[in-house]
C-alpha cells in the first residue's frame, strides 16, 4: 500500500514536471483546459446574449409585449427591473460550478497514476 502511494506520487510528479517544462504532453494538457474553459465562458455568454440581449429587439418588433401587464406592472419593467438579476446570478453560479469541474478533470488527469 505504501509502495503504491509512492509510485502514484512519482508519476504525478513526472506529469507536473512535464507541465512545468512545457513538454508536448504538458502543452497539450494546458491547451485542452484553456479551450474547455473558454468554450464554457462563451456558451454561457451566449445564454446571456440571447436571454437579455434579445429583449430590446423583442420589445422593438413586438410592441404589444411591452403593454402586457403582470400583476398590474408592465412586462418590460418586471423583466429588466426584477427578473434579470436572479438570471445573472444563476448563470454565474452555473459557471463557477462547471469551471471548477473542468479544473477538477484537469487535476485528475495530471495526477492520475496511469496515463
Amino acid at each position: 500500500m505504501l509502495a503504491d502511494i509512492t509510485r502514484q506520487d512519482s508519476r504525478a510528479e513526472r506529469t507536473r514536471a512535464e507541465l512545468a517544462q512545457q513538454t508536448q504532453v504538458g502543452e497539450a494538457l494546458v491547451r485542452g483546459l484553456v479551450r474547455a474553459q473558454l468554450a464554457l465562458a462563451l456558451r454561457l455568454s451566449l445564454v446571456v446574449a440571447i436571454g437579455l440581449g434579445g429583449l430590446p429587439w423583442l420589445f422593438a418588433i413586438a410592441p404589444s409585449l411591452g403593454r402586457t401587464t403582470v400583476a398590474g406592472v408592465n412586462l418590460p419593467w418586471l423583466l429588466l427591473g426584477v427578473a434579470s438579476f436572479p438570471f445573472l446570478i444563476g448563470v454565474g453560479w452555473a459557471y463557477v460550478r462547471l469551471a471548477e469541474r473542468n479544473e477538477q478533470d484537469f487535476t485528475d488527469l495530471v495526477q492520475r497514476p496511469e496515463r
Binding site: A41, L44, S45, V48, L52, P56, G66, N74, P76, W77, L80, G81, S84, F85, L88, V91, G92, Y95, V96, A99
Partner: peptide, 24 residues
C-alpha cells in the same frame, strides 16, 4: 422610464462578464 433600466442591469452584468472571462 423603462429604457434606462439597462443601466442597473448592465452594471450588474459587468460582473458576470468579469467572472466568465477574467476573474480567476
Amino acid at each position: 422610464g423603462v429604457d434606462v433600466l439597462w443601466y442597473p442591469v448592465g452594471f450588474a452584468a459587468g460582473y458576470l462578464a468579469l467572472l466568465l472571462f477574467v476573474a480567476a
